[in-house]
Design a protein around this nucleic acid. Structure first.
Lengths: 309, 309
DNA sequence: TATGACTGATCGCTAAAACCGAACTTGTGA
DNA sequence: TCACAAGTTCGGTTTTAGCGATCAGTCATA
């Protein structure tokens, strides 16, 4: 992008000469521009000096543009038109929650939360146009910080100082076993029982993996973990009797396949849950808007989840 | 033309925000704009306030335009482009005696002077594009004062204070008689002999008419004058033996029709001539150029005419 | 965790400019 | 010839752009 300085050209001066050309009269032009005739006269002279062009031919009773002046005045009007257009667009700027909003979401939440959300959003923010993106937490955070995303739905806390978040709801984890699993029928489950080698985990990067690990006090050693590439995969592995896992509540809702093969058990501890929240750059000037957005999301918390705040 | 004030918008400020957008860095943008970082920062803030739009999202390590900002920056670039275009055109303004020049000329001179002039002008002012107009003196003066003409060729002095003139050449009048006319054969002509009823005149408005009247001391009374609507008409009337007249020298040159029917006699007095000059608005900023133009015309004075100055 | 480099915002001040009223100049028309 | 109208010039005032210094976060590195 080559930089060409404008060497002192000013929109005000262009306004002045255009006014003089419109009205063919310095005094009335000055009146229209809201300055004294003297001031306007001086500014016109200054502009003529800057451009090194005599724009107007003045006799006491007569003001008319010179041929060069006529040409430049046409261009001056174009400049003013462009400037007015800018002002107009600025005045009609997009209101809060209008236009495009780039929303990121973690994979263990997106498919189970977003579909039910969309019609509500469409109704509540009719001018909003969502651009969805599903990625793991780290990727979302990166995208947020690079201004590739505006907001993201993820488990809190968000791992960055530069981001601001608001909680939306709390989601319990449920333990899901194959019917044949030895823990499936235990009258009472405790977290300490879950740190076993047949605890199935998502592969590295998924926050659900970290959440499961933090919930279960005794974790299997690295090499012995059995990893799934997605929650869906995890689900099928459990159905196939490969092991058991912790599944967030929303992902279970209305899930009827494998109904006969698996056993779902609540976990005893209240800490066996994660907080889902909305996250954005703290520096984004739309932060207040996003706080309101989060509040709205909170107000339509999915059933079976715990309202926050 | 509706007037929409720009309420303080300035090209400089637009330059600043575009620089910030280009470089994504206030300090370097300030450097490019040749101001301190402090000053630029303030101006950007002021512009944001004026537009009531946050143009940039700033974190300490990151500057990026907001969605609204992005839209407005595009428009800002358009404004700058228009302004640069204006400057560029101003720099490349037409030089002296380039482009269109609207030249008026009186009918008793034009047909006899202009044709020979055109090729010389084309050679000497290759970038000049002449717009010719032939009218009687009063009309030319009017057109000059209304800026409908730039310059005019007419007999001096030009009848207006607001006009400036420079002489080009002096043209004698010759007396033209039918061969059979009683004055045609007189050994010596005096002006006092010319004030006769058979002095043919152009109709009112032609300066040649006034010139003839001022030369001949005893003029026929109004009703008895015989009037021609053009010099050409006058010529034919003389050829037909209707009377005699005074014809300016240039109009006679190379005139061979009626050669056998008419007698051309020089007039004795040196005052029997008119000064042809170039005239323009005194207020026209191109006045110096026109003075040079007149000097050039003087330097190529037609044969048989008397150089001025 | 401390540190230094970097970046943008803020503050008090200065210099420049825009602006104003008044006096001046000069075509124009009565 | 005079008075008016309209643009320019002039001296002083106000506004504003701009500067240097400083402050306050952020980030990378030690």
């Amino acid at each position: 992008m080559s930089y060409v300085p404008l060497s002192g050209l000013s929109l005000r001066d262009i306004e002045y000469v255009v006014a003089v050309d419109d009205l063919r009269n310095f005094s009335r032009a000055a009146e229209r521009c809201g300055v004294s005739q003297a001031g306007l006269s001086e500014q016109v002279r200054k502009l003529e000096q800057l451009l090194d062009v005599t724009l107007f031919e003045r006799s006491r009773r007569h003001v008319a543009p010179t041929p060069d002046g006529e040409r430049l005045l046409t261009l001056g009007r174009e400049v003013l038109a462009a400037a007015r257009n800018l002002l107009e667009v600025a005045r009609a700027q997009t209101g809060p929650m209008e236009g495009a909003l780039r929303l990121g979401v973690i994979p263990t939440l997106g498919p189970y939360y977003i579909p039910g959300l969309l019609p509500r959003l469409r109704e509540h923010y009719p001018a909003l146009s969502l651009r969805l993106r599903e990625s793991m937490t780290d990727t979302l955070v990166h995208a947020l910080r690079n201004s590739e995303l505006d907001v993201a739905l993820m488990a809190l806390p968000a791992p960055s100082e530069a981001l601001e978040s608001a909680p939306i709801f709390e989601e319990s984890f449920l333990a899901v076993f194959p019917n044949t699993h030895e823990l499936a029928q235990k009258p009472k489950l405790s977290l300490s029982q879950l740190g076993r080698p047949d605890l199935l985990l998502l592969e590295d990067g998924h926050c659900l993996r970290d959440q499961a690990l933090s919930i279960c006090p005794t974790v299997p050693r690295e090499g012995e973990q059995r990893l799934a590439t997605s929650l869906e995969m995890l689900w099928y592995m459990i159905g196939a009797g490969e092991g058991f896992s912790l599944i967030p509540q929303l992902a279970l809702r209305n899930r009827v396949d494998f109904e006969d093969l698996i056993t779902v058990r609540p976990l005893p501890e209240p800490e066996a849950r994660r907080t889902i929240g909305l996250t954005w750059r703290a520096s984004d000037p739309r932060a207040p808007v996003f706080r309101d957005f989060a509040a709205y999301l909170r107000s339509i918390t999915p059933e079976h989840c715990h309202t926050c705040g």
